[in-house]
Design a binder for these strands. Sequence first.
DNA 1: TAGATTGTTAATCGATTAACAATC
DNA 2: TAGATTGTTAATCGATTAACAATC
Lengths: 207, 207
Amino acid sequence: MSRRISMAVIRRMPKYYRYLNDLKNEGVSKISSRKLAESMGLTASQVRQDFNCFGGFGQQGYGYNVDTLHSEIASIIGVNRKHKAIIIGVGNIGRALINNFDFYQCGFTMIAAFDTDKAIVGKVLNKIPVLDVSELDAFYAENPFEVAVLTLPKAYAREIAEHMVRLGVKGIWNFTNLDLRIGDENVTVEDVHFSDSLMTLCFRITD
Amino acid sequence: MSRRISMAVIRRMPKYYRYLNDLKNEGVSKISSRKLAESMGLTASQVRQDFNCFGGFGQQGYGYNVDTLHSEIASIIGVNRKHKAIIIGVGNIGRALINNFDFYQCGFTMIAAFDTDKAIVGKVLNKIPVLDVSELDAFYAENPFEVAVLTLPKAYAREIAEHMVRLGVKGIWNFTNLDLRIGDENVTVEDVHFSDSLMTLCFRITD
DNA sequence: TAGATTGTTAATCGATTAACAATC
DNA sequence: TAGATTGTTAATCGATTAACAATC
């Protein structure tokens, strides 16, 4: 029954999730599509269309129950699944993520970090053990993970990405400024492309 | 004459720029819209339409000269302008950017970093001096900057963002997981929203 | 000249917006 | 019941794709 969900809708789901979280924390119990749209810079139609991709969560004449909608969206996104993830490359960005980023809130459990630097392998950062990259296969055999976060130098990125695909990961969160072009239909790549983002800003402020 | 450029086109420009850079480095001198499209996962029509938003850079029967196109796109994006930028918040992500990110390549000169932590204020990281946040106004008066990079804790983000708008910056590169909702038409906000990105990946791998 | 490939117009597709009957 | 607001269908808008004359 579920017709394909467009990327535009998918990208809005996390935003709805965060807004509903805020409303929940403020003790708001109901919200209308109009009000939600207003506070998020969307249209009411858009909000209702988006939610109706997944079923009717509202009540005519009333609006949406914040708690219900929040938890519906949580399970639509899958943030309650807690997929296992590892991170490869414990440089500045890797460390920044390990120490400060809340993977759990986003639906993941970070179970290990990998690096080649002997100086850091064997340490534990924010409860995450740092292992040697050579242990990847053995580790996967024991603890199959679904997502690999790539925060390693560009030069090794493609090789490691292909390795991940061979192991059978479902997703790659890619911080290397490289377009991975994974052929495999079963692997989803999500890029965080700093330079594209900053160049976009450059374009928009350039007159 | 220039009709409004759609966001879809704007977001593709940095990718073209990077691909052309690669081609240039490989010594390729000409490229057709078909080949470029193929290697980037677009259609030839799309490539030609995109370029023709800005003028005709190709030659019928031949294709596009890589060097020419590369430098045309550089000046369309404005990466040759070297806008002045500062960074506020020298935590993990701030340091990662200061130490590893090539602002210059993306069209910016990073001229200073700001923090409130006495332990780091006064230091110099990768040639970037770290100043106290209280010096922002005085610094701006001497060295007006166009972009502020926000890598500070969420709690201070809105206040600092509004401060930046008052100073008159043109753009904010926002790493705080917060929707800034700047009203000012003259200020462009570009978000790097880690949690939205990771939740999107979560959605796409959740079955 | 013949072949290739652009620039550009027209057709298609998909996403957003508007409208409104259903209903709480 | 009357007012409000959803779910959903239809209309509009914009972006992508296709087609092809222009031309190198």
